[in-house]
C-alpha cells in the first residue's frame, strides 16, 4: 500500500517528454519518482566523464580525409575545470592542420557529451558536406569547447566554422548535439554574440534532417551578409530557403 497519489491529468504525459504529472504524497514526490531522478542524474554524470573515440569518428568520415586535433586540456578532469585550455589548440595539433582557401570547415567536438558527438554528429556532418560549399577537410576535436573551432578555422583558412559539439547532458537527454555557426571567426575576439546556435539535435528533439536544413539556412545567409550572431536572425535565414518551415 502506498500513500502516493497519481495526478488526474496524467494523460497529459503523452504530450511532452518533460517530467509532468508525477503525482504526489502530500506536497512531495512519490518514492519511485525520486529514485527515477537519481538514476537519470547518475547516468548523466557518467556521460560527462565519457571519452570520445576520435579514431572511430575519423574512420566513419574517411571519405573526406578528416583531421584529428586535441585541445590543450590533457584529460577530462582538466577539461571540466579549465575552459581556457579547452578553447586552445595544442601546438602539435595546430601543425597538423593544412592551410587552404575554404568557405566552411566542419568540426565535430566532444564538448560535454562525447556520446552525442560520437553518435549524432556524423549524420549531420555528411548532410552538410553534400551541399554546395567549398569545404575544408572536416576536423574531429578532442577535449574541445566551442571557441576551439575559431582557431581551427583560421589554421585551415576557412571563412566560416560549423561546430557540432556535445551539449551538457541533461537528465532526459545524455546525448544532445549543438551546432554553432560562426562567420569570420577570430580566436580570442569572437564572442557568443557572434555565433548562431541550433541546439537540441537528438532523437526526441531536433532531427538530423531538420537541424541540417536550419544550419544550412544560417550558412547561406551568413555567406551573403558576411556575418553571424545577433546580426543574423534565423527567421530571415529560413525565409530565404524554406518559408514554409517558419510556423
Amino acid at each position: 500500500m502506498t500513500s502516493a497519489q497519481e495526478d488526474f491529468w496524467a494523460f497529459l504525459r503523452a504530450a511532452t517528454p518533460a517530467r509532468i504529472a508525477l503525482g504526489r504524497t502530500g506536497d512531495s514526490l512519490p518514492t519511485r519518482r525520486v529514485l527515477d531522478f537519481q538514476l537519470a542524474h547518475e547516468q548523466a554524470r557518467d556521460a560527462v566523464h565519457a571519452e570520445l573515440d576520435a579514431d572511430a569518428l575519423g574512420e566513419e568520415l574517411s571519405a573526406w580525409t578528416p583531421a584529428i586535433v586535441h585541445s590543450e586540456a590533457a584529460d577530462r578532469t582538466s577539461f571540466l575545470q579549465r575552459p581556457d585550455l579547452g578553447r586552445a589548440l595544442s601546438p602539435h595539433s595546430a601543425k597538423a592542420l593544412i592551410p587552404g582557401n575554404y568557405d566552411v570547415t566542419i568540426v565535430i567536438a566532444d564538448g560535454l557529451s562525447a556520446a552525442a558527438a560520437q553518435t549524432l554528429a556524423p549524420t549531420v556532418c555528411r548532410m552538410l558536406l553534400a551541399q554546395d560549399f567549398v569545404f575544408a577537410p572536416p576536423v574531429v576535436a578532442v577535449q574541445a569547447r566551442v571557441a576551439l573551432g575559431d582557431e581551427i578555422a583560421v589554421a585551415q583558412g576557412a571563412r566560416m566554422v560549423v561546430m557540432l559539439i556535445g551539449e551538457r547532458p541533461g537528465l532526459s537527454a545524455c546525448r544532445s548535439l549543438g551546432a554553432y555557426v560562426t562567420f569570420d571567426p577570430r580566436p580570442g575576439v569572437t564572442t557568443d554574440a557572434g555565433r548562431n546556435c541550433v541546439s537540441n539535435i537528438r532523437p526526441g528533439g531536433l532531427s538530423a534532417e531538420e537541424a541540417s536544413s536550419r544550419i544550412l539556412a544560417i550558412m547561406r545567409l551568413a555567406q551573403t551578409i558576411k556575418a553571424t550572431g545577433t546580426r543574423l536572425k534565423e527567421d530571415a535565414a529560413l525565409a530565404l530557403t524554406a518559408p514554409q518551415n517558419i510556423s
Partner: peptide, 14 residues
C-alpha cells in the same frame, strides 16, 4: 517539471 529542464539540460527546482 520534475526539476529536469529538458531543453536547457540542467536541474532547477520543481
Amino acid at each position: 517539471p520534475g526539476a529536469d529542464d529538458i531543453m536547457l539540460g540542467y536541474q532547477s527546482t520543481s
